[in-house]
Design a protein around this nucleic acid. Sequence first.
DNA 1: TTCTAAACGAGACGGTACGTCTTGTCTTAAC
DNA 2: GTTAAGACAAGACGTACCGTCTCGTTTAGAA
Lengths: 195, 195, 195, 195
Amino acid sequence: MSGSPDPSRRSETARRAILAAALDLAGKLGYAKLSIEGIAHAAGVGKQTIYRWWPSKGSLLFDAFLTLAGEGEAAALPDTGDLAADLKLVLHATITELTDPRYDRPMRALHTEIVHDPALAADYASRLDGPMRELKKARLRSAQEAGELATDLDLDVAVDLLFGPVLNRWLQHTGPLTPDYADRVVDTALRGLRP
Amino acid sequence: MSGSPDPSRRSETARRAILAAALDLAGKLGYAKLSIEGIAHAAGVGKQTIYRWWPSKGSLLFDAFLTLAGEGEAAALPDTGDLAADLKLVLHATITELTDPRYDRPMRALHTEIVHDPALAADYASRLDGPMRELKKARLRSAQEAGELATDLDLDVAVDLLFGPVLNRWLQHTGPLTPDYADRVVDTALRGLRP
Amino acid sequence: MSGSPDPSRRSETARRAILAAALDLAGKLGYAKLSIEGIAHAAGVGKQTIYRWWPSKGSLLFDAFLTLAGEGEAAALPDTGDLAADLKLVLHATITELTDPRYDRPMRALHTEIVHDPALAADYASRLDGPMRELKKARLRSAQEAGELATDLDLDVAVDLLFGPVLNRWLQHTGPLTPDYADRVVDTALRGLRP
Amino acid sequence: MSGSPDPSRRSETARRAILAAALDLAGKLGYAKLSIEGIAHAAGVGKQTIYRWWPSKGSLLFDAFLTLAGEGEAAALPDTGDLAADLKLVLHATITELTDPRYDRPMRALHTEIVHDPALAADYASRLDGPMRELKKARLRSAQEAGELATDLDLDVAVDLLFGPVLNRWLQHTGPLTPDYADRVVDTALRGLRP
DNA sequence: TTCTAAACGAGACGGTACGTCTTGTCTTAAC
DNA sequence: GTTAAGACAAGACGTACCGTCTCGTTTAGAA
């Protein structure tokens, strides 16, 4: 019937220009002023070329992030044998990144779309957050083997407790995003709330 | 010169109609299709009446929430002497609320605005989240006195660990929002990750 | 239900700017490149302001012509007592006008719309062509009284015979549009085809 | 250099499908919605195949008409010896044709293009209108020999007077297109306007 | 009969314009 | 002098075509 586009004929040049322009404009303008029209113009591309290949602004932003993250992808989290130190190191790096306007704005834009689009959220979970979460769980498993963590620990919940609060504070502006906060989160979570 | 509006002449009828229409439409249409134009029309009000009294769509949504939350505001969290049980009870109620589309959609709309508007976030923190956080901390303090929690605990971090993950999972669609997940979070956080 | 716009609130400034821009661009660009978007831009006006008040590009062009023609409207055709000379004079003036690119192009644009839009044609007939035709018929009636024309003449057909061919030749590019052609049409029509 | 297409390799199948689709769609959709894209699709043909062989939409329409008209081409106008009757017969047939939506719409489309494209008009004059005009002049010459028309008549102008008004009234929607109107035109033109 | 070059269908591309929608400001009339 | 109503300039939305430009696939004439 309608016929979906043939990916083999897709222009790689245009694809790259669009993803680069999307990231760039998201960083410069922020979510509210980010328009498909503007991206198309900045990429030197017809609007239809965007609408042909991406179903929504969110999925375009997501693809742009994939290419960004896919480049310098860390293979694994640091493992010096000191879990707390390693976690703090990673969280400090995350904070540095989230504080950089070049990342802050496109990331907020992407998360806004995720909040309202479950399909996009599923994509995000399986292709960006999922792999990252696996790395985190691998580091925690290594700590379990080293006796630093309880063996019956629910690793998914542990990841949420350790990495969630920093992301949350950043997204919701609920307080200053400092390395000290990350340290307190790690210490508190590891020790537990009980006496 | 310009003359800012005189609050004493403000129409209470219009104000209430606007807040009700904002909540109603946010619930029916979701964030993307929520327009000031539509709210004005549904409230039987001129657009200027909205622009005169609210600086942004987010602050309007926020006021609408205040009136909603302000009505049946719980004075305190339950305190049966069993902290874990009390926390789970509260989180289960939260999950029930977040699962109701009548709350889900306007809440997402509000949080989207918060993500992009630090001023609104500050307002949210001081007038909605702040009081709630105080109630949570009060319950934790009571637990400290009962010896259920460490006395040197960082209460702000503790609140983030206990209540953050459920909110996060809801907002980011990172997994199914079940009472069981809340239970695991509470148990894991209280016990701590260490053996 | 939908509510049509209230003419009493219409901006006269915008109306005039739009009509002027439409005529100007029709003359400069010709029909094919004449766009509502371009007119709005040239008039310093939002597109919606055009769509609010005119149902089609044709009706806008027509209104633009009305204001143009309404200004220097001739009260009557010349009447020197010599019908043939008077007709030739008028037709020569018409040819001069139709030959001026400033008139040629917008006029072609308008006639193109008329060809495809009977409603617009009716408007044209009643408000532009109609009054003009009455002036022509008045001159012919005067000639009848002077004994220059048959008394039982079908005046509408006579007007078609005398003024149609020049318009036709102009529109259809069926031959050079010269004063000589006009003279031959007048002479032939007056004399009749029979011996 | 660029290399113009080699007509000997042209696909006759494609050519015919394109002309048929053009006529068909012009009749069904009218001029405004007639697109080359649509014609290509309806003909089962690539767009390039149209652009390769026709320089404009108008010239394609024109070719489509040529094939249509070329088939049942009348060799000559009727000649019963009664000029007025013969002319009325022909004009009545013309009116019947112009009233048929199957002809009306493509013909309007073609004439619209002619109005704006002198090159196309020249083609039209030499290949469609020209031959037809010769037939008309031949009939008039026969009438001259029979003493029905003045011997010094300007035949080109005579044709314009006799056949122009009906075409004009059809194109410009200036009045109802009835056989009676044709009769009045013929009678008035033959008799002349003078007493 | 094989080779080869052009025409073919298909459709992606950079663009322009469409007609609709919403934004935030400005204007008008009614109360 | 605030209100409901809504016109205004601005500009993004997603769609439809434009005319150009590849792609592989026929197809037809020359070797």
